[in-house]
Amino acid sequence: MAARADQRARRWRRIGATALVCLAIVAAGCSVPPPRGSLPAGTPGADGPCGVARTDLWNPLDLRHADVLFEPTGDGRPWTGGSCSDDARPVVLVAHGYLGTAPEVYQGLIDHLVGAGFVVVFPGYTVEYGPSHQYEVVDSGFDLGVEASGRVDTSRVGVVGHSFGGGMTPWLVQQIDARGWGSEALWAVTMAPHYVLEVGTGPIELPARTHLAVVNYDEDVVVDARIGIDLYRSATLDPSQKVHVMVHTDRTVDPPLFADHFGPISFEFASFLSNLSTDRGDRWSAWRTVDATAGCAMDGRWCDTDLEDMGTWPDGRPVVRAEVSADPVDVGPPAIQECEFFLNPRPCP
């Protein structure tokens, strides 16, 4: 009993230390990086050929943070079709986490998406609890970015959300559908989603053509995985149109490779944060899932991707596999934002 109590105390100390460190670096990420490396060309998660051009816009609904537009450049031929410099490119809205107001927090993911030929819009919103306004800021910022680009094919639309932005993803998909966008391809990937607001307390109505992936992390001490599980279960989609992925910590290495709340985050601009730059973990657990979901929605490719596969270590040992399940359960530790907290309007599974 004493040993178990001591183990529990150590676990809570690690949870507390992890949360404090994460907040101290503005939600930069806490994962121990696995070896760097690219995925083979022609597979989901692989680097694309397009360059990146950035334009800072300003959203009248929130002038404190830039509404950032990223566009593909060059003559490469990405998997999304055509040329990087085409006048009609598919678009992705990136809805950031609560503290991740600068796109540099997600630069690895953004560069990957633009490299694949997507126009990316990253609307910043202020860190203050006003969900209705924050949701509107992101939605209007997306519209503003699409209009400013002039290169967007609005029939092919995706949403990638993380944490607080992950919670707003279903509502954003509804707004996209209301505009008549996404007629050829509509998809969404939400990672470690915060409370799902503005969609009621019952079934989450999404257009039947939507492809949805919900990603949770088994050692997320910030957001309860049951929130993502409820989102997955409640989405009114055919089972073939949605998937839940639980990414697991790998304890076969020392220190362990933790599957934590900050999986999709990678800084690319600060050398002193090199351990938080893009690594194989980002490519396998985030980029690969995003590409597979988008590819399946856009032209039927990669629909049978094994999303449990997290790659191998340099010595050939497999990284601990994720779990894809039609009946997911929460296997993680207590979180700062538990499902039963009063701010969550939805039932807990």
Results as ranks from 00 to 15, higher is better:
188 A>K: 01
189 V>R: 06
190 T>H: 05
191 M>E: 14
191 M>Y: 07
192 A>I: 00
193 P>H: 02
195 Y>T: 10
196 V>E: 00
196 V>S: 01
198 E>F: 07
199 V>N: 07
200 G>Q: 05
201 T>I: 05
201 T>Q: 14
201 T>C: 06
203 P>W: 03
204 I>K: 04
205 E>R: 13
206 L>N: 01
206 L>Q: 04
207 P>H: 08
209 R>G: 07
211 H>R: 15
212 L>H: 04
212 L>G: 02
214 V>W: 00
215 V>D: 03
217 Y>G: 05
217 Y>L: 15
218 D>A: 09
218 D>G: 09
219 E>N: 11
219 E>P: 00
220 D>L: 02
220 D>P: 08
221 V>I: 09
222 V>A: 13
223 V>R: 00
224 D>A: 12
228 G>R: 04
229 I>N: 10
230 D>N: 11
230 D>I: 03
230 D>H: 11
233 R>Q: 11
234 S>I: 04
234 S>A: 15
235 A>T: 00
237 L>I: 06
238 D>Y: 02
239 P>R: 00
240 S>E: 15
243 V>K: 11
244 H>W: 05
244 H>M: 11
245 V>E: 13
246 M>W: 06
247 V>W: 08
247 V>K: 04
249 T>Y: 14
249 T>E: 13
253 V>A: 15
255 P>C: 06
256 P>M: 08
256 P>V: 06
258 F>V: 12
261 H>P: 06
261 H>F: 00
262 F>A: 12
262 F>N: 13
263 G>I: 01
263 G>H: 11
263 G>D: 08
266 S>L: 04
268 E>M: 09
269 F>K: 12
272 F>Y: 13
273 L>T: 07
275 N>K: 10
275 N>S: 13
276 L>D: 03
276 L>N: 09
276 L>V: 03
277 S>I: 02
277 S>V: 03
277 S>Y: 07
279 D>L: 03
279 D>P: 03
280 R>I: 04
280 R>D: 14
283 R>P: 00
284 W>S: 14
284 W>L: 14
285 S>I: 09
285 S>F: 12
286 A>R: 04
289 T>L: 10
292 A>I: 01
292 A>E: 01
295 G>P: 02
295 G>W: 02
295 G>A: 09
296 C>S: 05
298 M>L: 07
298 M>H: 06
300 G>T: 01
305 T>I: 09
307 L>F: 09
307 L>S: 06
308 E>N: 13
309 D>N: 15
312 T>L: 04
313 W>P: 02
313 W>G: 03
313 W>V: 03
316 G>A: 12
317 R>W: 08
317 R>V: 04
317 R>S: 12
319 V>Y: 09
320 V>A: 15
321 R>E: 13
321 R>L: 09
321 R>T: 06
325 S>E: 10
325 S>L: 08
